[in-house]
Design a protein around this nucleic acid. Structure first.
Lengths: 226, 226
DNA sequence: AATAAAGTTTAAAAACTTATTAAAAAAAAA
DNA sequence: TTTTTTTTTAATAAGTTTTTAAACTTTATT
């Protein structure tokens, strides 16, 4: 389960339940009912978002907000409050709240606003890196490394390598490779051979990856798992 | 002047004025009154935040939202609308709006919510100063230094450099760069080449950053980490 | 082992992409 | 307005990639 974790800080049982029901299909939900417990929970657990009621029994919700913000700017906090006063809203928002939702609230709107906050918080570092022995392909950067050195491959060479890499261990027929690289029209086996030679030359010159690309006579080519 | 620029997309003169008065002390404000002009403005200018009314004379505000979101996720958009329907709110928020404020609204709350969106966006940009070898970009001041000297880059040149800088080490395709800089409509590879030449001329003239911008023939451009 | 079929390599020609320049058009500033 | 700057368009030179074709090598079959 890789669901996001939402912490609800709320002492009113009715609203606790309402929120739990609204959120539980999309998120993992935990509930605490005091300021003290809220801070403690956030320090000790991985939380993706906090829904914070301002009216808590022990301390004001603003205290929780300020405390959390003193050690992380990266955790989205949504204030839920009956207070409709402008001052409260501005205060909360200026102290680091990501949104301020007034009671009574619509759960569909709340859900949408949760999605906004989680979306804004994404710090995405997609990790699509392929490794096979001394060969490393960084699909996002569009670059290939051999023995740790970046080596330049032309666009078509790159496409052929990626295709083989995405099918490690499987032999791809000439026609399949040609159709993937040149489209349906292409039918030049000789051309493909020239590219394979160029690719092999670069690999063999830059890394010890013996037999990483193998010829299946009469069938096609395959990349072996090293 | 290093004020943030806010674009107001609104056709009602009264609200235009109200907003202008509320915002002008803290921001540089520009106003357009149609969807067409809004998109055009965002493509051609540096904008830090958009306040978007959904009820526009030519096209629905949602069209503007979707268009802008198709080429940048990094520009905060606040929806301002008389529509109180949950569906509208959820729709806008799920299509990339950062907030949804219902008319009639409190200007102090609006201002607080603007601050939230701008604040979140800075966190997204990580730090405001980018350094790579002899190249320094100050995102907040909108200025670029080469070997410690400030060098003037035009608006489009600046956008291209920032885009490459934000993706150091990754090759960005021509079409991706074009869509980010000129919006969906743009499709002028030649134009991009002219800009790249201008950028390179300035970099090479002012700093020793050999090969900082690399061409990936048939693919695009990339900024290398020096 | 001889032969045919399939694969590899090389290098030059052709096709295509990119860099650079300059002038026209558009936009911004004075 | 005029002037200046920026952006777009267009043309050509320079550079890179892809294709083609021929000589050479390996593999499979008789």
């Amino acid at each position: 389960m890789d669901d996001k974790v939402i912490l609800i800080v709320e002492d009113d049982k009715a609203i606790q339940n309402l929120l739990k029901i609204a959120l539980k299909t999309d998120y993992k939900v935990d509930i605490v009912n005091t300021a003290e417990l809220a801070i403690d929970y956030c320090v000790k657990n991985i939380v993706d978002l906090v829904i914070l009621d301002l009216g808590l029994p022990d301390k004001d919700g603003m205290y929780v907000l300020e405390n959390i913000r003193s050690w992380t700017k990266n955790l989205p906090i949504l204030i839920l409050s009956a207070r409709s006063d402008d001052t409260d809203k501005v205060n909360a928002l200026d102290n680091g709240a990501n949104d301020y939702i007034q009671k009574p609230f619509s759960t569909t709107e709340l859900l949408a606003r949760i999605r906004v906050s989680l979306r804004n918080n994404i710090i995405l570092e997609e990790n699509s890196i392929f490794t096979n022995g001394d060969l490393v392909i960084d699909y996002i950067a569009h670059s290939i490394y051999l023995s740790g050195q970046e080596v330049h491959f032309t666009n078509f060479e790159y496409k052929v390598i990626c295709l083989l890499a995405q099918n490690v261990g499987k032999t791809l027929t000439h026609n399949y490779i040609i159709s993937q690289i040149w489209g349906m029209g292409g039918n030049d086996k000789n051309g493909l051979r020239v590219f394979m030679a160029a690719i092999r030359r670069k690999i063999e010159k830059n890394a010890y990856c013996d037999e990483i690309i193998r010829t299946d006579v009469g069938v096609g080519y395959r990349m072996n798992k090293i």
